[in-house]
Design a protein around this nucleic acid. Structure first.
Lengths: 167, 167
DNA sequence: CTTTCGGACTTGAACCGTCAACTCAAGGTA
DNA sequence: TACCTTGAGTTGACGGTTCAAGTCCGAAAG
């Protein structure tokens, strides 16, 4: 919040930011719409089920799952309750440490993932992979990792206290 | 929805998708959090005010603004009502064609943008531009444009009818 | 052993975006 | 004049996310 004149974005920079902004708002929306149509799932719900399906025993701690899907624990908890009510997973205290909760994919949830994954992968391929050259998606990976580092350097992902600046 | 084995993503492809997925969920969240802390605005509200501030006469049609900010007209309408109640803009029928609605930035709204923009630009610079080389953000621009074309080729951004496939 | 503490969830209210139904203006068409 | 159509924008209900408590478990301190 200094009073100096800021360094505004030049033409190249703002064109990049505009194009990226459109991509990061439209790509999730497109994948969401596709999953909604074909599987009656939101993108986030799919991420949760798919995330579980890839773990040994098809189960993991809620906090791991939240980390993996880049969501808050609260959001995951609400979503887990809905998925639980559909019979796709259940939650149980971790027997090795009662402070954690394990989310476990049911057989029905496993079937749902298996039925949904091919179409979803095809959509990711269509919108992202096939739209780019091999060189480009290697570039995109490096670029994303650099940006993630810059964001990850945030001590608490922007969740610090409004007044004190403390997490 | 064929029964053939789908083409799964290989290691390079899924690493790219994972990295991109994390970027596109965390980058907007980080910018949102920054604006919330420093200006009590959501990222989308800022986009609306900033979008208006760049137009001649600091005004434009609602539909243009929706297009620019990649949002639905409904979302924009709700947000415009909230911003209007804070005195940052007002809406009025377009005198040249009563079917359109003009959104007009007030002086108070202009002040808000001027106060907020420097910090926001600095954050975009810190998280995106400065994290990349000049070559990389030129690559990122091309990549984003390619993906946007692939998504834009969608006749109706995934809004077609569930049964008929018609928009 | 009891107390205190921090971390992992959970819960309910408030808030925001989506969806479908509606209004309204302008341009045909008769 | 009346009628129909199209597209812009609005509205209210619904559903999901966030935010701010609160609960519970286990470890560490007294």
């Amino acid at each position: 919040m200094s009073t100096e004149e800021p360094r505004w974005l030049d033409a190249d920079e703002s064109a990049t930011w505009l194009a990226l902004h459109h991509m990061i708002t439209r790509l999730p929306a497109a994948l969401d719409a596709d999953l909604q149509r074909n599987a009656d799932l939101s993108f986030f719900e799919y991420q949760v089920l798919a995330g579980l399906s890839m773990r040994p025993g098809r189960q993991t701690r809620m906090s791991d799952l939240a980390e993996f899907s880049a969501a808050s624990l609260s959001r995951l908890s609400h979503t887990a309750r809905r998925l639980e009510s559909k019979g796709w997973l259940y939650r149980t205290p971790d027997p090795t440490d009662g402070r954690y909760t394990l989310a476990v994919l049911t057989d029905s949830g496993w079937d749902k993932v298996r039925a949904t994954a091919p179409g979803h992968v095809a959509e990711v391929r269509r919108l992202l992979i096939d739209a780019l050259t091999k060189t480009q998606y290697k570039q995109l990976r490096q670029i994303s990792e650099r940006v993630n580092e810059a964001i990850g350097a945030e001590p608490c992902l922007g969740l610090r206290d409004k007044e004190t600046g403390i997490c």
